[in-house]
Design a protein around this nucleic acid. Structure first.
Lengths: 231, 231
DNA sequence: TCAATTTGTTTGACTTATGTAATAAATATA
DNA sequence: TATATTTATTACATAAGTCAAACAAATTGA
């Protein structure tokens, strides 16, 4: 995990860098706004998170954040600052920062907030997967994953599976499913859906998941955890 | 946007609900841990964010958060609490909360933090897209989008495009690209890569993007914004 | 400038995915 | 239990995607 640290107070900066390094992060620290600006905007640096002081020499911290968001850089950003004015917090958060810490703060609170922020994109973006119970769908590789099994789905299978994984434990009607997967215009026979339901069930069986695509007679289909159906 | 609010102080709870409703959110409020637990874990409610008091009657707020994360519910969660003990903050954040606010807090700070949290999954998960400059890739529909144009890619085109969009403005070697798209084992001819580069360029032209897949002679390819190449 | 190398484009054989139909099984209701 | 309706399974023709070959164009360095 690589962190960019922009803080003009050299003593505090060194202190933070030392602590974060001790926790296993790779830290690029910088005391100057202009240099920090260049570091922040160069994608080759590949930062996973940025900690930026609101007040920096030459270039304002907030301006750096705005520029990063403008270039659609999506990494989490924490602002730290001496100012605790409410308006500053709101301005910072509304301009693209994900968290706001007021000095003085305890380094272990900063650590916990870093972990919280890094965890989130790790689930949502980096792995880029939809998951429910023991099933997950790697959207970039189009793979259905369960434990150690993995299986490449065809495009239509994938799309249908993703619809179920976005709304697990909820009954989806034939209309909703056809709408989502085949779009409005396509005049797809409803029978074709049964076909793909059948294919997906085979896939789910193959990866030995505990999930099932149950049919709800007269209503539609639902993705749920297998449960005993003893009479 | 639908928010779940679990807060046992009825006065504060009503106050918050009123404010958030005024800001356009749909708010389900609840003063009881047991009822809140059921609300939080029912996916049918479709909450986009949860605000949970650390101390709730019957069931602890932290226990609810743990249960939600255990069921792989990925919505952002803010803990609010009267306790400002450092250890409590760290415990809350490390158990799945995304933010931590200590009472008393100003409602407009809560609002700003809500906006910051809702913005993030909106970029990363809900839309489920990779983007750079004017290009974006809808990973569920396998569509390349630019302004109002959109275009369905074939699986291999899609996979290759996603590799470029994950590392824009960075030169990727032929080896890296083949590795990523065709996996290690596949003995794909390097020429086939040129093939797909060619296809993607046509696609990018079709959606009239300002981006190009430039070749870097002897090195590889790079996704970047078109720039004049006047001599 | 020339030759060697790398990259761009077109084409066609081959493989895979899709949608429909036909038939079997299961479910709900009278 | 009988019957209509819904869902499951199998099979197959058509459509689409993939890969590699062959050749054209561009780039680099001698």
């Amino acid at each position: 995990m690589k962190i960019l640290l922009l803080e003009d107070d050299k003593y505090l900066c060194d202190n933070m860098k030392q602590q974060l390094t001790k926790e296993g992060y790779i830290v690029d620290a910088c005391n100057d706004g202009e240099e920090g600006f260049l570091l922040a905007l160069d994608r080759n640096n590949g930062y996973d998170l940025a900690i930026i002081d609101r007040m920096l020499p030459v270039i304002d911290g907030l301006a750096i954040i705005k520029a990063m968001r403008n270039k659609k850089m999506q990494l989490p950003i924490i602002i730290i600052t001496g100012m605790s004015e409410l308006q500053d917090k709101i301005e910072g958060l509304d301009n693209g920062a994900d968290d706001y810490l007021t000095k003085p703060f305890h380094i272990s609170e900063l650590s916990a907030r870093i972990r919280a922020l890094i965890r989130r994109p790790a689930i949502l973006a980096e792995q880029n997967c939809l998951s429910y119970h023991d099933l997950s769908l790697d959207v970039l590789k189009r793979q259905l994953v369960c434990k150690s099994s993995h299986l490449v789905l065809t495009p239509t299978e994938f799309h249908l599976m993703s619809v179920f994984l976005e709304k697990p434990e909820i009954v989806l009607t034939r209309e909703q499913l056809i709408q989502k997967v085949w779009e409005t215009d396509a005049s797809v026979e409803s029978k074709n859906l049964d076909n793909y339901i059948y294919f997906l069930r085979k896939r789910i069986r193959t990866v030995e998941s505990e999930c099932v695509l149950s049919s709800v007679y007269g209503s539609g289909f639902i993705l749920e955890v297998k449960h005993d159906t003893k009479a």
